[in-house]
Amino acid sequence: MALFSGENILCFRGERTVFADLSFRIQLGEALVLRGPNGSGKSTLLRLMAGLLKPHDGTITWDGENISDDPEGHNAHLHYVGHADAVKPVLSVHENIVFWANLRANAGPIEAALDAFGIGYLTDVPGRFLSAGQKRRVNLARILASPAELWLLDEPTTALDAEAISDLEREIATHRASGGMVIASTHTEIGLKDARILNLDDFRLTEDAA
């Protein structure tokens, strides 16, 4: 049995069916890439996986247990990176990350997380001075600062340059090597070794090896 999986998920947005009968499963160490054109429901699926949205039918389970039975427990397993970076303009980069790390039981070293994305030199800079790409790196460093098994990344490469993308690829590989799981939606090619692909295009829900 897969650690994290969804069965026959049905989701409406307003009067529109975003997807019906969608299933997915992911094991420790695996990566799943969501593909599809705009409006095909990639973000919606990630929000369903995070528990921000509830499916109208079907179940999403973690280790055999429905995630809506214990939402806080599920939250502890995951990190979510959405469209907005949640960087407060008046807090320094360090303060921004420390705040989020302290909400978790297992806060790790902040400096290592910052260095992983090459923003160690920005530690004391207030958020309002950061560029879009730097904010995105802060947001990504946040998920390194307190380890969690499952990463849900919604278009994580937005605003990132080539160097930062390769940093991200390396961190994802490290995360998977230590047994972590990654589910990411992306337009651009992102080099993930043996990632499985879930096509949300045209409701052809094929799951195949890349």
Binding site: A50, G51, L52, E72, G73, N75, A76, L78, Y80, G82, H83, A84, D85, A86, V87, K88, W100, L103, R104, A105
Partner: peptide
């Protein structure tokens, strides 16, 4: 809500 902090706060392991 606007800068995305609220959804992250809702995704923390506390009620």
């Amino acid at each position: 809500y606007e800068d995305g902090s609220l959804e992250l706060l809702a995704l923390q392991p506390c009620a």
